[in-house]
């Protein structure tokens, strides 16, 4: 039994040694906003925050999370970035979008008005195979309305 702090709530979850945080979020807690695409830490679809820092849930072991607080896309439901992504039409197929918004949330928390270069640097770990990058940049640069 492992205790996990997710989006402000405590959960008791089971897993084996190699169970990943992504598997637990999706399979046990029903938080399916966290996506798994590559499953090996390349694409960023599974990005969550651990104590505010972006992390890849598909290569984070459940048992290694420890006391760190997990924030998933569901925990960012009311973040203005969500509306900004809609306004900028920064979504095509949408599969990478949760991870994009989580990474963007980590960026704007530290740097509320990032330059284009800062956006590109901070978002480099979130791949979008539909190629909506210009719209994603627009969303992040206009998130404050």
């Amino acid at each position: 039994m492992t205790e996990l702090l997710v989006n402000g709530g405590r959960h008791e979850v089971h897993g084996s040694v190699l169970t990943t945080l992504a598997e637990v979020l999706r399979g046990h807690l029903g938080l399916t906003g966290t996506k798994v695409a590559c499953g090996e830490g390349h694409c960023g679809a599974c990005t969550v925050l651990l104590d505010g820092a972006p992390a890849l849930a598909c290569i984070t072991l459940l048992e290694a999370v420890g006391e760190r607080e997990v924030t998933t896309i569901e925990g960012l439901r009311d973040h203005p970035l969500v509306d900004a992504f809609v306004r900028a039409d920064a979504v095509q197929c949408g599969f990478c979008t949760p991870g994009q918004i989580v990474s963007a949330a980590a960026l704007v928390r530290e740097t509320p008005a990032p330059t284009r270069e800062q956006v590109r640097h901070a978002m480099a770990g979130n791949l979008c195979r539909c190629g909506t990058y210009p719209k994603i940049e627009e969303a992040i640069s206009t998130w404050q309305g």
């Binding site: 830490g41 960023g44 990005t47 820092a53 972006p54 992390a55 890849l56 984070t60 990474s103 980590a106 640097h121 901070a122 978002m123 480099a124 770990g125």
Partner: peptide, 8 residues
């Protein structure tokens, strides 16, 4: 690497 990998 990427921002996530550098943070981890």
């Amino acid at each position: 690497a990427s921002p996530q990998l550098r943070a981890m």
